[in-house]
Simulated scan of single mutants.
Amino acid sequence: MKFYGRNWEPLSDNRDDKHPNVPTPGVEGSMPITSSHADILASITSLTEIQEYDLTGFSPGVFRVQQRLRWASRRTTTRIEDMAYCLIGIFDVSMPITYGEGQRSWFRLMEIILQQCKSWDVFAWAGPWSPYSCAIPSSPKGYDALDVNSFIALRRTLDMGKLEGKVGQTPVHLRGDHTFAMTRHGLQMKLPLLSAAFGRTKQEVTIHAWTPGSYLRWSKPQDLTVQVKCRQWVPKAEIYCLGIVNYSVSGLARLNTEYEICEGPLLCFFFTLPPNDQSWFRLQTENVIIIDHKGAPVRCGCSFETLLI
């Protein structure tokens, strides 16, 4: 494996950047070639966030989806279509190559990924939608909205790394609705909806919640605020809510008309129900919406609904 710069000059004088200290084959007694850029792999990892184990022993497939799409989030390509086509091998999928289709190539790739993906991390993006679906970002740049440290913390807290598997494997206790599916009418997905109030000037969503008080008794209602930066004008509506994407059955305990949220942080979508409308509408946001109540249980109004996004 060799790495080259934009003018096709080698970035090291190794024979093989994957194994820089291997002697030249066929030359008895030859010494390993030493590199003027001995830390070439470490440098690439630092710049691209692609770990060294992926550079030296990559396994293609539709898993660790958010992380792999993040690799492409800062790429630029001469042709719009190549932003999608360059990921075909990484995800080990098949799709026709049709130059001239523009942004639709990215939509087609994401449709295929969503058909095979079972984990919630594919929805950890923000920014403009695809013109073909509000469940898909307009480009991989949407996956750069959540910084890598926040995403790693999100995965570790929810033990995502141990639950993730390859195509055809459905891990036990997988979070969220792993039966979500792209249909002719949009993404069909079951979500718990938390009732919320939205303040346009503060760009915050407020959840009316109960939090634990002294002696493990429940205190008076205490608002839980969540930062939401909207990219568009938010229509006036009677009802706003947050849909939890990475919920778990064990982390949502029903208590009469309320639910107790025992685990976090939680990845959410922001919805509104416009007047005289019977379907929820997902709003564009500039930030990935995360509820983090620092591990303390929270009680609030909640309902489970199957939505078309």
Score class of each variant (00 low, 15 high):
Thr48Asp: 03
Thr48Gly: 09
Glu49Asn: 15
Glu49Met: 08
Glu49Tyr: 01
Ile50Cys: 13
Gln51Lys: 15
Gln51Tyr: 08
Gln51His: 13
Glu52Val: 15
Glu52Tyr: 09
Glu52Ser: 12
Tyr53Arg: 13
Tyr53Ala: 09
Leu55Asn: 11
Leu55Ile: 13
Thr56Cys: 15
Thr56His: 13
Gly57Val: 06
Gly57Asp: 14
Gly57Thr: 11
Gly57Cys: 13
Phe58Asp: 03
Pro60Ile: 07
Pro60Ser: 11
Pro60Val: 06
Gly61Val: 09
Gly61Ile: 12
Val62Ser: 05
Val62Cys: 10
Val62Gln: 01
Val62Glu: 00
Val62Asn: 00
Phe63Ile: 00
Val65Asp: 05
Val65Glu: 06
Gln66Asn: 15
Gln66Cys: 14
Gln67Phe: 11
Arg68Asn: 12
Leu69Ala: 04
Leu69Asp: 10
Leu69Thr: 08
Arg70Gly: 10
Trp71Phe: 14
Trp71Gly: 12
Ala72Met: 10
Ser73Val: 07
Ser73Phe: 04
Ser73Cys: 10
Ser73Gln: 09
Ser73Asp: 11
Arg74Pro: 09
Thr76Phe: 12
Thr76His: 14
Thr77Arg: 12
Thr78Gln: 14
Arg79Val: 10
Ile80Val: 15
Ile80Cys: 04
Glu81Met: 04
Glu81Trp: 05
Glu81Gly: 03
Asp82Gly: 08
Asp82Asn: 12
Asp82Leu: 02
Asp82Ser: 06
Met83Lys: 07
Met83Pro: 00
Met83Glu: 15
Ala84Phe: 07
Ala84Gly: 04
Ala84Asn: 03
Ala84Val: 07
Ala84Cys: 03
Ala84Lys: 03
Tyr85Trp: 03
Cys86Ile: 10
Cys86Pro: 03
Cys86Val: 10
Cys86Lys: 06
Cys86Asp: 03
Cys86His: 11
Leu87Lys: 00
Ile88Leu: 08
Ile88Phe: 02
Gly89Cys: 08
Phe91Met: 07
Phe91Val: 04
Asp92Cys: 07
Val93Trp: 03
Ser94Met: 09
Ser94Arg: 13
Ser94Glu: 14
Met95Leu: 15
Met95Val: 05
Met95Cys: 02
Met95Arg: 07
Met95Tyr: 06
Met95Glu: 06
Met95Gly: 02
Pro96Asp: 10
Pro96Lys: 05
Pro96Gln: 05
Ile97Arg: 12
Ile97Asp: 01
Thr98Leu: 06
Tyr99Gln: 01
Tyr99His: 03
Gly100Leu: 05
Glu101Arg: 12
Glu101Lys: 03
Gly102Asp: 13
Gln103His: 09
Gln103Trp: 04
Arg104Cys: 06
Arg104Ser: 08
Arg104Thr: 07
Arg104Leu: 10
Ser105Cys: 06
Ser105Asn: 02
Trp106Ile: 02
Phe107Val: 01
Phe107Cys: 01
Phe107Gln: 07
Arg108Ala: 00
Arg108Cys: 01
Arg108Leu: 08
Leu109Trp: 02
Leu109His: 01
Leu109Val: 04
Leu109Ile: 04
Leu109Gln: 00
Met110Ala: 04
Met110Pro: 05
Glu111Tyr: 08
Ile112Ala: 02
Ile112Glu: 11
Ile112Phe: 08
Ile112Arg: 13
